[in-house]
Amino acid sequence: MTQESCRRWREMLGAYLLGHLTPDERVGLEAHLDGCAECRAELAELKPVASALSAADPQHLGTPPAPPAELGDRVLEHVRTAHRLHNRRRWALRIGAGVAAAVIAISVAVLVRPAPKVQKEEVAFTTAPAGVVAKATLYKRAAGVEVWLQVKGLKTGKTYALWVERTDGKHVECGTFYVVPGIEHVVLPSDVQRIDTVAVGVDDDLGHNVLRAPVGPPRQA
């Protein structure tokens, strides 16, 4: 096949894929494709692009809506606020990152083996502002306690930090969560062992305590 005639056929591939060729043209092109591996390869590469066209809505091809000018500043402010929290608890977050890795490993492990029986217990919050209803369940895991927090009444759009208090008085942050209307629970892992846990709690993004639930000594197994 000469390059020149190949190009003539190849340039029809777009119209062919979109179903726009006349029957004669189609027969001619298909005959060419039968004998030309290069053009077949090109056809195969363009096929997904041609099919993807149907996903687009031509009404949406105009300039997309631009974000408000101050959104960039708000993004940075959001991060700065979280950063202040982060600095205060940098040491805790480092542990948290390790825990996150461990959790991923555990999640993978959970997928491949039957879940072992996990000891769990409910704890009640003795500190809670008016209008906030919260309940926590502690799961005793090998890597440390995992906290399932159910909470209503926190401020939408705000970021909060969940921590576990150890016997030495230190608050170990399990992670932060962001309040979205309608989502009332969050599960966060910690690397604090159940036996070392004396309380769990939640601070707001300025580090003020919002919720606290004392945790008694573990039951004897």
Binding site: P64, P65, A66, L71, G72, R74, V75, H78
Partner: peptide, 28 residues
Amino acid sequence: HGAELFGFAVRSLSDHGLAEEAVQETFL
């Protein structure tokens, strides 16, 4: 990428306010 993400958020949420929230949370 902020403007593009915002455009997509508006496209999928059909709500400018929520789209702004989505962009902030994504970068956080």
